[in-house]
Amino acid sequence: MTFSALTILILAVVAAVILVVGLWAYGTANRLDRLHVRSDLAWQSLDAALARRAVVARAVSAATRDRLDESKHLAALADAAERADRDIREDAENAVSVALGSLDSADLPPQLVAELADAEARVLIARRFHNDAVRDTLALRTTRPVRMLHLGGTAPLPSYFEIAERSGAATFGHGGRAVQRTSSRVVLVDERGRVLLLRGHDPTVPEVYFWFTIGGAVESGETLREAASREIKEETGLDVAAEDLKGPMWRRVATFPFNGTLIRSEELFFAHRTQEFEPENGGFTDFERRTVTGHRWCTEDDIRLLAATGEIVYPQDLAELLDEVNIVLARRVEPEVRGIR
């Protein structure tokens, strides 16, 4: 039995298609598995952050025993939230948020106010990590080819976790206490490995300059990635899609005065590589135009030289961290978040 040339060609094409589809399906299934693992780990982190907030809530309850009814109610809500099943956990945690929001932080010891603020900030960050992981998993899991080929297996679909977020002012109260701020920052490097830094100053101390990476505060309703993408556009004019950012890779917490306000900033750092370009500041506010005075693409040696001349660079040890940025950008998997100064 012989085959014609056309038959052989058709069989070859069919075999090639099957091979390509098989390789795609294998790669997609592995990617889905990693996304599910990421979602599970993100939920574990969120669960731990919520558990810590429950502990602090009970401490707040103990500190308000002069108002016995409110104290017992808050403690009961914290206990119920810790024991709640996943399907009713949102309602239980939101009830704790409402109860905490009804308290006057000025009546609490400053140390306890700070602990509560830190606990709520950790919940905020963990929830955003979790929802980012859920979004990425659902985006791939719900595509038609994945559903048709059942590449998701029997793993249940992850779900978002929505919980009311209290403002930093509400958390920290009045009179000189730090205002909580969550920021997305981006280590933007060019093809030569140089990082783009902005130069600015505190308007109350105009003679002292410092250098910092692209980024700013996360706005209401934004994910960390969305905030990072927006800040790149506003501060440089460069369009970078949120999904093209790697990270977050670092977490930095710092308390500092700026423009007469004490700020406790929790910063999450992403990385992105681009070709060298001339940044534009068309997205700056009037305040930013007055306080951000320049920019520069910096090598490790440039950063060390700036520090040697007395101009501070944030984050600290950025020169030593640039090698890590290049490693993060070279890898296909997302990095684990670690603390820096």
Rank of each mutant, 00 (worst) to 15 (best):
V56I: 15
E288I: 04
E336M: 07
A92L: 01
V187N: 01
I10W: 10
L198I: 04
R290G: 06
R296P: 10
P335H: 07
S220R: 14
L151Y: 09
E191K: 05
V113D: 02
R147P: 02
E278D: 12
D190L: 03
G193Q: 03
P248N: 09
R230T: 08
L32F: 09
N281R: 12
A81M: 06
S45W: 04
R53I: 03
D239I: 05
A76N: 10
A319F: 07
L268M: 12
G153W: 11
L23S: 08
G221H: 08
V96C: 02
N281L: 08
L77F: 03
V13Y: 06
G310E: 09
V113S: 01
R147M: 14
H272W: 00
F3T: 09
R181Q: 14
A84K: 00
D244L: 10
A121I: 07
V328A: 09
S71Q: 03
D136K: 08
P109L: 02
G283P: 06
M1F: 13
V292K: 10
D79E: 14
A62H: 07
R53W: 05
V179I: 13
E276W: 02
T291V: 15
L197W: 13
R296S: 15
Q316N: 08
L268Q: 09
L50T: 09
A330N: 12
D301T: 15
T143K: 14
F161V: 08
R185Y: 00
R53T: 13
G200I: 10
L116K: 01
D317L: 11
L305R: 12
R252G: 03
R225Y: 00
W211D: 12
Y314E: 05
A119H: 11
P335M: 06
R338F: 12
L9K: 13
S265H: 01
A271Y: 00
S159L: 07
M249F: 11
L46Y: 13
F256D: 11
A99N: 02
H36M: 07
R86D: 04
D244R: 15
G339V: 13
L112G: 01
D132W: 05
D47A: 09
L197K: 12
A117M: 14
G282L: 14
A170Y: 00
E235A: 06
R199W: 08
L23C: 07
K246L: 07
H295T: 11
